[in-house]
Structure formats: structure tokens, C-alpha cells
Design a protein around this nucleic acid. Structure first.
Lengths: 271, 271
DNA sequence: GAGTGGTCTAGACCACTGT
DNA sequence: CAGTGGTCTAGACCACTCC
């Protein structure tokens, strides 16, 4: 006689289904039995069946669709973002001819997709600096900032995407009025080229990486599932004079993003 | 007359409570009204109240304790890990005298805690390379590896910690038998010094950062809450001859960890 | 023993999706 | 229209904590 299983029945059901998914018995995209059906099969109440299914959703294994059913999720392909190489690439691109700069942007560089497969959106606005951003930019709270919001989606899929918000000091950006108009986006050559038109050269960048649950707004834009988290990156760019010139917050769905940072170490002194 | 709120009642309750927490009306550590009490106050069933409380747990705002009540979680202090600086620091430390090397390790450098406040654990074993690790190390599947597991905890708190697993090719490590014995841990000067005893100098390192739900084992070791995620970092070290010499997987509780990578850009060519 | 959160039942109505 | 998942009720028993 085997030992009694003392775990809650909904956990047992969840694990049974998880094993079926792991074994491939329930393949990606497959439709699970409906809730009333599972309740009948197992002799459990629909409430307990729903608890089991919620567990599977928290594990990221299934997706429930209202009116349709519950499906096994495809294993997400993670987009690899190599930010160190990317930032250098973006900077170097500035001195290429416009035809070349026009051909691709940062997202294409990251994802391997082509320009025509992506839908690019930009929206500018003017805001007063809150304490957080003001501290990073070393300006007084309330300073006028140019707030630039970007989001990119793949045309083919309804797939999620990325969203980011960038802040520049308005007075600085206004030295070139073209930088204040979001109808000039996508700007060939990106932010580095935009900054170069007002004599700014970025010297170093810092990425601060954090994982957290998404805000309600991010749930809507990125269409994350319940229980999903996001990777949030705060990128701070400092120019050759040591002045912070841009603060940008980017948010990615954590389950389809990986970040790679390559680090070169200095050699030991010869002894 | 204001517009009717069409959202589910449990969402409305969750947001009301969230606002109270945000405003500080319910401070960190405060006890929420019990479930029957909330049900009575709002006229909702206990099931709906529980749905609201689950939402708050998914947001990471409260923690339920069986038999006690539901408490507002303290905002976690995030430990900042500056891996680029850390790796360089670890490498440079090798050529310092042993008394200095003995005084602190990587975790103290990261967290600002002192040696005597930390509990350090190391356990070595020998394993056969699986496909994943074999690929990274460029060795055949099944090659003998030295598997080194580390975990560190703060003595004061029952606080979570970090855990990591490092893999070296056994044949390589065995060139210095002292490297095979975990009773020599913590080794003054860390892995870089260990490798230096067999003539290996690390040239560059790559961090691959991913956020994901914790494995059952990680839940136990890191004592994460339901719905929490972890940050998993795969660090690959390559020596000056271009050979991968170490693969290490580190796991951190995502809600109390931030990673910072500072990136120096090359200057534009003078024109 | 009283009170808490965790599990569970057996219903009900709803919004949404397909045919 | 029937079937799906989403919401909701009004109960019940349990394990656990604290007094």
C-alpha cells in the first residue's frame, strides 16, 4: 500500500496535468477538458478544479480564454537583448550615411526582425520632473522635461512587444526644435543621432535591471497573463562632460526576454 | 451621478485596499481585517473577499499567515549587485596578500554586510555533464565535472539569501587536488584565486539574465512567497586562451534584487 | 476554545465564443 | 443557440496560532 497523499486535491490535479504537459501528452496549443468536464471526471467541485487551473496559470503552463477554453501555452521563445553591444552599435551608427541609418533601428538589431515586420509608435509630451527623475538628471523637481514614449509590436503576431519611456531636459532638447516633434519618429539613427545634433556625445550608460509584477497599465499594453512578471530596465546615459543627458525606462515581458551582458576584465599586471 | 463601476467587485475591493496601503493608511506590518470581517463590512461573500486578497498577494502587497491573519508586506530593500565591478574586483583581489583576501568575499562586497554577519555554505560533488552544460563548456556530454554548490545567508535575519551552482571540468580542477575539497571553502580570494593555482586567468565573463518562477527546490531554499519570481543569472567565464573554464548559475529572489551594469562606450573618431 | 486562513461543495448568473 | 470561462453566494470542515 502506498502512502496517502495529503496534499490538497487541487494541487494533486494541477500536478497530474503538469505531468501530462511535460510528457507531451498535452501538446502546446492543445485544449484542456472544460471545467465542468474535469469536475465530473475527478469528482471534485468546479471551484476546486478552477483552483488547479489557476495553479497551472501561475506556473505559466496554460492560458484561459473566455468563451473558448483553456489551452496549453507554447513555450515562449526568449528574445535575447545584448545591451552592451547594442548601445555601442547605436552610438557607432550615428556617423553612417542617412540611407544606412534609415534601414534599421535598435529593435530590429535586437530581435532579428526586419523593419517592415515591425510597427513602431512614438508619442512625445512635456511633463514636470518628479523627484525620482529629477534626482537622476540632477535638476530641480518640476523642471520641464520632454517625455518620449515608444512601443514596438510585431505586425505578424498579436505578440507582446516592448515599451519604453525616455526623458530629456526640455530646454536641452529644444536647442534643435525638430527633436520636439514626434512626427519625426522613427528618427534615422535613433537617440544618439538626435543628441548629436545638439552637440551631445554619450560617454557611458548604466543599466539597472529589476523584475517586478507589472503595473495595470503595463498589463494592458504588454498583454501579460495573470501572475506574469516584467523585467524593468532603467538606462541612464551620461555624456562626455559627465552630465546625465537621458533617463529611459524600458519594460519587457519577463517570460520572453533574456538579457546578456558581456564583461571584459583587465589583465593581471605582469609580475 | 457618477458612472457605474463595471469591474468585478473583488477587483474593486482589492484596489480600495491597495490605495489604503499606498496612502500609508495601512502601514507595513499592519494586520488587515479578517476575511469574515471584510465580508461583513462589504456585504460580499467570503469567496469574493478571498479573491480580492489573492489579487493583493499577486501584487506582492500582503502576506497571509495561516491561523494569524493577513499582513501588509514590508517594502523589500533591494540588494544591488554591480556584477561588472564585482567581477573585476574579484579578479584583482587574487594578487593581494592572503590576510587581505581572507577578510572578505564576494557577497560582503555586494551587500555591504561583514564576514561575521554571514553564514557561508559550500558543498562539492562530481557529476556527469548534461547536454546544457556540456555545450557551454565545449566538452562531450557525460564528461566528469566538479559541481560546487554555494549558499549564503545573513545570520541576523531568517532572511532569504542567494544560491549558486558552479561547474568546472573535473580533470582541469584536479590539477590542484586542494580544489576538489569543499572543506577548503571559503577559499581566500575566491574562484579567481583557485583558478590561478592551476595557471588559469579569466579574460572575459558573460552574464545571461532571466526572470522566471522558482523551481520547487528554489522555493524551499529561498523561502519565496507564492507568486514570487526569481532572477537567474548564468555566468560563463572564458580564460585568456578562449577556453570556457567555468559555468555558474546563480538564483536571487527577484523582489529583493537589482542588477546594475555600467557600460563604457568608445569615443567617436575625431573627424 | 476562539479566531484565523486554507480547502471544498453545490449551486447560480454572467459575458463571451462558436455554429 | 449551446458551451466556455469569469464571477458570486452561502454554507461547511480543517489546520494552525494564540490565549
Amino acid at each position: 500500500m502506498t502512502e496517502r497523499d495529503w496534499r490538497p486535491r487541487y494541487v494533486q490535479l494541477a500536478e497530474e496535468l503538469r505531468e501530462k504537459i511535460d510528457r507531451g501528452e498535452l501538446a502546446a496549443g492543445a485544449l484542456l477538458p472544460s471545467e465542468p468536464e474535469l469536475a465530473a471526471q475527478t469528482g471534485m467541485s468546479r471551484t476546486s478544479v478552477r483552483n488547479a487551473l489557476r495553479q497551472l496559470r501561475e506556473w505559466g503552463l496554460v492560458r484561459a480564454e473566455q468563451g473558448r477554453g483553456t489551452y496549453v501555452r507554447a513555450r515562449k521563445v526568449r528574445v535575447t537583448r545584448r545591451n552592451i553591444e547594442r548601445y555601442q552599435w547605436e552610438k557607432d551608427r550615428v556617423h553612417q550615411p542617412e540611407e544606412v541609418r534609415r534601414q534599421s533601428g535598435g529593435t530590429e538589431h535586437d530581435t532579428g526582425l526586419e523593419v517592415h515586420q515591425l510597427q513602431f509608435h512614438a508619442k512625445y509630451s512635456t511633463v514636470d520632473a518628479n523627484e525620482d527623475i529629477a534626482n537622476v538628471l540632477s535638476v530641480p523637481v518640476g523642471t520641464k522635461l520632454l517625455r518620449r514614449m515608444y512601443w514596438t509590436s510585431a505586425k505578424s503576431e498579436d505578440a507582446p512587444l516592448s515599451m519604453s519611456v525616455s526623458y530629456l531636459v526640455h530646454e536641452v532638447a529644444a536647442q534643435n526644435p525638430a527633436l520636439l516633434d514626434d512626427s519625426n519618429e522613427p528618427w534615422p539613427g535613433g537617440t544618439h543621432h538626435q543628441l548629436s545634433t545638439i552637440g551631445v556625445e554619450v560617454d557611458h550608460v548604466s543599466d539597472r535591471v529589476v523584475a517586478r509584477p507589472p503595473s495595470p497599465n503595463e498589463v494592458e499594453v504588454l498583454r501579460t497573463e495573470a501572475g506574469d512578471w516584467v523585467l524593468a530596465i532603467r538606462k541612464v546615459s551620461t555624456d562626455v562632460n559627465g552630465r546625465v543627458v537621458e533617463v529611459a525606462d524600458a519594460v519587457y515581458p519577463a517570460d520572453r526576454t533574456e538579457l546578456v551582458y558581456g564583461i571584459q576584465l583587465k589583465p593581471w599586471d605582469k609580475k
